[in-house]
């Protein structure tokens, strides 16, 4: 119901565009390939991309404040490595989960602290975070570690049945829950609204007395938490820890946000967007998989093309908005000006 509400509110071009895109792509797939139009193929989109949905949702908050978090991909890999190592050492599975989430929060918070306190470029700080995360996971182990822990195996293979015969994984459930929570946070908490205010206009936010620094730190904390959660979901999906997992995934997350209508300039976007972005990328991937003869790099080209279209679309929206403002100021001035002008002419 909320979703319907959001879509209907108008000015939600991007969400609408992305939804239409998914439907079109999915329709195309269904007509072209046998077996494409099945509940399970659709649910697999969630199962296979659960971690990306989580990470992209965390990233979306950062982007809405006008920042960026490049460390997410490396951090998911690091979490997989830490989990695998700790489990190998015989730690309790639930303790490991809690511990990794905590690490995520701390790591993200530290990045946010550096960015807000010392006015460092988020690009640089999170880039360093990315190096740090990858390097640390290799320091722990350069090899891939297979997870044999019972709890993790159970979580990995658990199938949650859905009406209609399909099923989803625990990871997909977590992802959906997170998206719902994120939508709630964005809409119904002070923190969520401050995120939008900071992204809309930092100096205004400061002048309005909003806690800009705290919001920045919290946002990176949340992104760190999402990376850790995504790391957990990814770990039970792969059942292995490896430092080379998900190379370049941060770009996928950013792309998902852009396609999902999160404006990279900050201040705009709905938290349902990243999920839609991930899904549309997932559908493309599935189509290419079903097609069979097209190589996997077409995914990159297609995603890149989508990215381009959406970035240009975003740009046009911004330009359009600016033009609107100018028209407003013209409207304001036109009347008095012509009036005085004619009077002046009459005088002379």
């Amino acid at each position: 119901m909320k979703m319907v509400d959001i879509i209907w509110k108008g000015n939600h071009v991007f969400i609408l565009a992305t939804t239409v895109l998914i439907i079109l792509l999915y329709g195309y797939g269904s007509f072209t390939f046998t077996g494409f139009f099945s509940a399970q193929v659709f649910l697999n989109l969630f199962i296979d991309n659960a971690y990306l949905i989580i990470v992209a949702t965390g990233m979306a908050f950062v982007i809405i404040t006008g920042g960026i978090d490049l460390s997410v991909g490396a951090f998911v890999a690091l979490i997989s490595m830490i989990s695998a190592t700790l489990l190998e050492m015989g730690f309790n599975a639930y303790l490991v989960i809690v511990l990794t989430l905590l690490i995520g929060v701390l790591f993200g918070g530290f990045q946010g602290y550096l960015i807000s306190q010392f006015d460092l470029h988020p690009w640089i700080v999170t880039l360093a975070g990315m190096f740090l995360a990858r390097g640390t996971s290799f320091l722990i182990n350069t090899e891939s570690i297979v997870i044999t822990n019972e709890t993790y195996s159970y979580l990995s293979s658990a199938k949650v049945p859905i009406i209609g015969g399909g099923y989803v994984s625990i990871g997909a459930i977590i992802a959906l829950l997170l998206v719902i929570i994120a939508i709630f946070i964005a809409k119904y908490t002070k923190f969520g609204r401050n995120v939008y205010a900071v992204g809309g206009n930092v100096s205004s936010a400061r002048l309005m007395g909003l806690p800009v620094k705290r919001t920045t730190i919290l946002v990176y904390m949340f992104s760190g938490f999402c990376s850790a959660l995504g790391g957990f979901v990814f770990t039970i999906y792969m059942l292995s820890g490896y430092g080379l997992h998900l190379l370049g995934m941060e770009m996928d997350a950013i792309a998902a946000c852009v396609i999902g209508g999160i404006l990279l300039t900050g201040g705009f976007g709905y938290l349902i967007g990243p999920m839609l972005g991930v899904l549309s990328m997932g559908v493309i991937q599935t189509i290419i998989m079903f097609q069979g003869t097209l190589s996997s790099w077409w995914t990159k080209i297609a995603v890149g093309f989508l990215l381009f279209i959406f970035i240009v679309l975003q740009r046009l929206v911004v330009i359009n908005r600016r033009r609107k403002e100018m028209e407003f100021s013209k409207e304001l001035n036109v009347k008095p000006e012509t009036e005085t002008f004619t009077r002046k002419q009459l005088d002379t």
């Binding site: 010392f118 460092l120 470029h121 700080v125 360093a128 190096f131 390097g135 350069t142």
Partner: peptide
């Protein structure tokens, strides 16, 4: 030693250099 430590060192160097350049720091 593990060549991957290069990344950790790079990360620390980046942060250090940027902190030095940061006026507020």
């Amino acid at each position: 030693i593990n060549p991957q430590i290069v990344m950790v060192v790079k990360a620390l160097v980046v942060i250090l250099v940027c902190l030095m350049q940061s006026e507020s720091f």
